[in-house]
Design a protein around this nucleic acid. Structure first.
Lengths: 344, 344
DNA sequence: CTGAAAGCGCTAACAA
DNA sequence: TTGTTAGCGCTTTCAG
């Protein structure tokens, strides 16, 4: 077997034509080729098992047809969901997706961005990873398109509107949850927020928590807010701490469904009945939420939609050969809504 | 800002040296450079914000430092886990991971393999996707390294030992589960297997189910086996069917933890108490398993270990510039063990 | 309708 | 210690 060493030259030689012809045949253009010649080329391609080298093509075309996506944690189904939406969409158009796990580290995020740019990906999606001035500058000087997908919390003011984005604002949904807690007569409510170290760049409190507290404040109440990590275990452990107190909360708003799942587990371990002894609300509405026992009350985030909005923005820009700056200001927004189930 | 147009030539010109020197400085070799010159080059690099073009470098080096991984479904935390293990490991060595979702389609698997090969990835990991003759031939003629990670079920005989692999055999663990069911006095047990369309290439029954049935047979029993898809919903729906029957099973072995989660949900909906009215065992031991209510009895699969064994095999082969055929026959195996919790 | 050749950005062998 | 240059595989302009 001819080990990959088969190049366009070999095909041309075997078919007895010039290399340009081979190119025209393979790409169906840009110039026409006589049917007989075309057939000869095709036969040679077949015989040699020739396949074009995408690397060479990328170098020449100054376009790689590959996209990068940065994710805080691929293991978390929430982030995976938007990545999946994008991948599914672009594969049909010949793009490939390179994914990077930032693990919440700003340093990793920066170095991945750098790496992807050196590899000349056509665009980079920042999937709930936040974007800082570093990434912005890297994108700027390289001319690579970047787009942000995530919460408005994670976009520092100096960054917003500098690159296109698809964002959501958790405040209104948080407010609804807070209202619900108030209506249910809870007076001791806790919010568990889930920060990667370091905390969100803006340093601002999370919008979704602000929403909850706004509702509480209207009833002259407030919430205790504690911070934890991203895993099921983090949710479990944090809930354990909260529930150990004498004046333990009777309602917990968990930052996301993964944390909420940990909380539910801990509640069960304490012999607490949810929602009677403890109300629990999550956020994200991952598929799992409605399979948990009890079914989780949570906030539906249109993950697939966020992915495809971003994907469409990028692909269109690429197709129309827009410059990155022409995309600045394209800030799309999606709506969230509360999904009431059994946990709170 | 100089839009990415900065190339090695610009740096050389600004520093007043030859392009080779720039190369030597950037790569720290292969030839030494006088300190003064080096400093000048570095300054020019800095001033221009120069970054090497990885595409050109790949073309030249005949090596891209990118790896491909094919996964049945990124949304499933089980598959994501091994991908994560690999990614984490190789990123430090400068590799990047391009992931493809096959969605269980053999056609997609083939076309992704093709695509990745054209992009000249240095190696492809097949993560529980199976590998068929098509992929084998593609790898063969391209000289790209391929490695299989998954169950032995999914490797047709014509493919085994043709490429390196890290596999597990579910039979013994299945047997343990079957034994447990027997010891608990169950006489009506059901197995839910989870096939993507089409069914596993080998056409053979799944080893883990064979194990369960072997144990049952020893007690002169047998299991009913039903097939379903991969989602929580699939598990839920299939359990609904099973539990609707008059002679409903009192024990269910679910193909994996995702399916088991759906089963648990349905059992709760039917007002069945697990494990008293119904025993449920899963497979994989995803992190979620021990947070479910009830905690899921399942089989621990060393996901991270499988990933890193495969990763090490590949990286070593790449470092030592081994030919793909030198890897054939490197078949590693990992052990599984039952994790008894509360569901069965 | 087809061939020759330049050039994408980089590395390294060869020369000086 | 440094400069020059061929060539990785491809596309496309310019000639014929």
């Amino acid at each position: 077997v001819a080990r990959s060493r088969v190049s366009r030259d070999d095909v041309a030689r075997l078919a007895g034509v010039s290399t340009a012809l081979v190119s025209y045949v393979i790409n169906d253009g840009p110039r026409p080729v006589a049917p007989a010649t075309r057939a000869r080329v095709l036969r040679a391609v077949e015989e040699l098992g020739y396949r074009p080298n995408h690397v060479a093509r990328s170098l020449r075309a100054q376009r790689t047809f590959s996209l990068g996506i940065l994710v805080p944690e691929v293991g978390n189904p929430f982030y995976a969901e938007v990545a999946k939406g994008i991948e599914d969409e672009v594969f049909g158009r010949g793009y490939t997706l390179t994914v990077g796990n930032t693990q919440g580290s700003a340093e990793r995020r920066r170095s991945y961005t750098q790496n992807l740019i050196e590899r000349r990906v056509d665009a980079i999606f920042f999937d709930f990873t936040g974007v800082g001035p570093d990434e912005l500058e890297l994108l700027e000087r390289s001319g690579v398109i970047g787009i942000y997908i995530g919460t408005i919390d994670e976009l520092p003011d100096g960054v917003r509107h500098q690159l296109p984005s698809v964002t959501m604002d958790g405040e209104p949904a948080g407010y609804e949850i807070g209202r619900r807690f108030v209506d249910q007569g809870h007076t001791r409510v806790a919010c568990i927020v889930s920060d990667f170290p370091p905390p969100p760049m803006s340093g601002a409190p999370w919008r979704r928590v602000e929403g909850v507290r706004r509702a509480l404040r209207e009833a002259s109440l407030d919430a205790v807010v504690v911070s934890t990590g991203q895993s099921l275990e983090d949710g479990y452990r944090t809930a354990a701490g909260l529930l150990a107190a004498d004046d333990r909360p009777t309602a917990i708003f968990a930052f996301n469904d993964v944390i909420a799942t940990g909380v539910l587990r801990r509640a069960a371990d304490e012999g607490l009945v949810v929602p009677d002894d403890l109300a629990v609300c999550g956020f994200d509405d991952i598929e799992l939420a409605r399979f948990l026992q009890p079914r989780l009350t949570t906030v539906a985030v249109p993950k697939a939609e966020m992915g495809s909005l971003a994907e469409r923005t990028v692909v269109e820009a690429l197709d129309r050969k827009l410059e990155p700056d022409e995309l600045a200001g394209r800030d799309l927004t999606v709506d969230l809504h509360l999904v009431v189930r059994d946990s709170g």
